[in-house]
Amino acid sequence: MMNPKTSQSIAWVALSFITFVVMGALLFLVLYCVVHGWNSLNMAFVFGPTTKGGLLAPIVGTIYLIFMTLLFVIPLGVGAAIYLSEYAPVNGITHFIRYALSSLAGIPSIIFGLFGVALFVTLIGHASILAGALTMACLSLPFMVTATEEALKGVPKSWREASLGLGATKWETTWFVVLPSALPGIITGIILCMGRVVAETAPLLATAGFSPFVPTSPFDGARTLALHLFYLATEAPSTGTVTRYDLISQAMGIAVILILIIVLMNGLIRLFSNLYSRRFLKQGV
């Protein structure tokens, strides 16, 4: 039997070693990408037309797709969360809805891609922003519902009772009292959904269309930044003057932009969740 002190020291050394090596390696790889990609970032590349190797179309496509997705996912997600947190009786239907939400969160994104092809692309007739956005809305719905429901649960019960006591109906209480106080949590949910649209590629591969032109209507095809990165990294160069090396460095440039977007979104989420917890602390509830 080893001396407990010795075994503790061994464990300490081993655990800190693993943590530093692994975290160091992960951060090194990300930094490697950032340093290499940084050089390829310039105005001509970022805002140039995509047919000439620029990023204009994927940037507009990403923003377009984010807005279209939010259009579907905010009303559906917030509505479902309100129902589950404020109205839902404890019965079979509620149980099934919760089970569906947790199952959806665990389904691989490529399956959503297949589903989007079989339903939305078939209905619309061709791959388009609309089909892509509907697919992404299905994928991000559970995240929106969970974030909003957490926020609604955080609103003190006494506020609801005060409002109901003053004669407001249940819906008035929900709309005028509960929802406004849960707003930071809802915004967190929205940012999470935006993050999904920015990061996911598998569901959009065959649903968003991969047009290299700036989209003008929801029925146009589009590509997102992440999809564009994928095409650059996996497709052979089409014209003679562009080499494989050029494409890879362009892809690294996009990786830098994507990482910056994720950093920004994580920062915003942190900010909103701090705001949220501080407000309730101040009011002493």
């Binding site: 990061a199 996911e200 994928f230 994507l258 990482i259 994720i262």
Partner: peptide
Amino acid sequence: GIPSVVYGLI
């Protein structure tokens, strides 16, 4: 949060 295509690229 880093997109999977970035991991693929790395």
